[in-house]
Design a protein around this nucleic acid. Structure first.
Lengths: 389, 389
DNA sequence: TTGTACGCGTTATCAG
DNA sequence: CTGATAACGCGTACAA
């Protein structure tokens, strides 16, 4: 097919100057229709694609964006990246993946090295954990950046940001349990240093107060967002005399909920008959555990897509490709269909218990202290861990 | 810190020519020790990193390698990429991720676009499915490429290749069940068009014959490597009269095994008491399903690492960084237990439940018809789905 | 062993 | 609106 044509060759073939070819290729506004067509004909015929490297050198824009992630084996990461990849595929940009290992103490060096290469024209930082302060320095020094980071309070956070409404999420989970008639509802919090953990807790409190209940300190446990701490909390709770058990538990993330399921099975505790359980996240496996987990769904894939869209808008306001909008409607319904398979929500909808699957919607982006923030909605996914089949 | 120093600036600061700086930076052999030190001092002081883009343009090597993957939500992909990322992090290369959606009918175009950009100096194609023929064209046209692809028979496969010994894997699974005393052992095959499915089946047959048994056609089912087909096969099997049930089942991958677990739970069939179950892959979730799944482990992360190592050796034989080897021995014992056979066998530890975990070893790379092939070993992971706790 | 000069393929800046 | 021409930052023959 193509060997190694340059813009020069195309220019010669089309009988124009290479600057003209360049202009056509970059959608320069003031070009005669005739020239544009003449060039495009040759471009298409030879399947010409300009050399990215040269483009980067000359124009300063690399058409590469970096994506910094925790190990891909973390629960939500692959889904977020799917959203990123699907969006990026429809642009002329490419994604350079930096999957960093937080175990490595030198990870700030890694970040510096990445950025000093000046290869990426922007950075999407996904759950950067303790790297946040370091990254913010680069941001303040001018690197276009977007974060997906639920550890920091959005207020006064200087960097563009995509996240979900954790408060409402916590409310949804708790409200669901209240609607089922439960009153003694425990909450297993995430680490207090994580803002999302605080928000989910606040949502929990708000739902309780709405029905005239006050959060009971005895029913509040402290977890670490991992299965081990879930197991620990479960053992602690189930070691109490039966009368002091809660009727239901809202666990601040699915990982800890898995720990609860394990302990429950060990000890022969029936879920939801003995205790109802609701998690948060809707990880891919949550519909496959036993019993399938009722949980608050975060639209991870959509978060990734929104975040990369925002980033590209920052580095290149008109990066949008022709077929972008059409694909957005279609592709998302397909992605959305994944939300309502026969296994999970369908059963809930079918059992006539009146629980609905509220499909998330995109809130409009808003500015807080000058930085754009996009907050997406969570949605409750009802499965068998809260309502018996 | 650094603003935008060029090699020219460094040269001036060090009082040498820019070619000298370039040579030092590229480990050119014939350089005086003094010059090298003089340059490196300045380089370090200013934290200089050469511009990748310019490097790519001038030298023709981009220091970027492409990694083509199915959606990251596929079971083994994140683990493979973890291996890739951990290796790449220790080199001066970066990974450009192309996560493609096989649903998209135009994916060959996507591939062509990627490659015509001439941005990546090599491509690692992970489980490219029906894209293989198309990719091979690019390979034969000179693009350095490595595949992780278990659908094709290694013989006569022209492209460097990393995979596992599926035959021995199938043997291990079956042998394990035989050792437990089972004789009526069913096998749920993967699609016949996948070479790995055939190999696993052959391993199954070999183990049976070793103890004087002949594979029973009645106990051979055909699946499609997805949970749905697993459920289908399970229903088919368990619908037979009880005397015609197998005592144990070797399912050709974990995904299908999940389907078996679901159906078993639906129908109140006890695993392993009523039927023992062994899968293949050891996906991340397989230790968390109920009961935890006995399975043949593929060293996905190591496969990724080996594959990218091979690819980098092809595009740049001495890409190894100074700290690479040290890191491999030391800091990497944790992650590196997967990489170095040295730490392998010793780690034959119990996973808490007293079941042995045989750690796989790396076979030496060998050539087949001129193309390098690396075949890694699988290992049996015994959990509760085959031996009651 | 080191320095000089040119080229890599594009974009941007000028004239025209 | 279009065409020369100068950067962009680095690698590398070639010369010294």
């Amino acid at each position: 097919m193509d060997e190694k044509l340059t813009i020069q060759d195309i220019a010669r073939l089309a009988g124009v100057s290479k600057s003209s070819v360049s202009r056509v290729l970059n959608n320069y506004p003031a070009i005669s229709q005739e020239l544009r067509e003449r060039v495009m004909r040759v471009v298409r015929e030879y399947n010409f694609v300009p050399n990215v490297t040269a483009r980067g050198l000359a124009g300063g824009k690399t058409r590469l964006v970096g994506v910094l992630t925790p190990p891909l084996t973390w629960p939500a990461i692959p889904e977020m990246l799917r959203g990123v990849a699907e969006y990026i595929e429809r642009t002329s940009y490419e994604m350079v993946l930096y999957s960093i290992n937080f175990e490595n103490p030198t990870h700030t060096d890694v970040v510096d090295r990445i950025l000093s290469l000046r290869m990426v024209s922007g950075l999407l930082a996904i759950l950067p954990c303790d790297l946040t302060p370091h990254l913010l320095k680069h941001f303040e020094r001018g690197l276009p950046m977007v974060m997906i980071n639920d550890q920091e309070p959005p207020e006064h956070f200087p960097c563009p940001w995509v996240g979900v409404d954790n408060r409402t999420g916590g409310y949804q989970a708790t409200r669901h349990l209240l609607d089922l008639g439960y009153r003694r509802i425990a909450h297993v919090m995430g680490p207090k240093r994580y803002y999302c953990a605080q928000e989910r807790f606040e949502g929990y409190c708000q739902a309780l107060r709405e029905v005239g209940l006050e959060p009971d300190p005895e029913l509040l446990l402290q977890g670490e967002f991992d299965p081990a701490s879930g197991r620990r909390c479960a053992r602690e709770l189930f070691a109490r005399e039966r009368t002091r058990w809660p009727e239901a538990i809202f666990v601040a993330n699915d990982q800890m909920a898995y720990g609860f399921l394990e302990v429950a099975e060990e000890q022969g505790i029936q879920i939801p008959q003995d205790v109802a359980l609701v998690g948060f996240d809707d990880n891919l496996v949550s519909s496959h555990v036993r019993p399938p987990l009722t949980t608050v769904r975060q639209p991870f894939s959509q978060m990734g897509a929104k975040a990369i869209e925002l980033l590209l808008k920052m580095v290149d306001p008109d990066h949008v490709l022709p077929r972008a909008r059409a694909a957005e409607d279609e592709g998302h319904t397909e992605a959305g269909a994944r939300m309502t398979p026969a296994t999970g929500p369908l059963a809930a909808a079918a059992d006539g218990s009146g629980h609905q699957l509220r499909v998330h919607e995109t809130s409009a982006p808003y500015r807080l202290d000058g930085a754009i923030h996009i907050q997406l909605d969570t949605s409750l996914v009802v499965r068998a861990s809260s309502v018996p089949a």
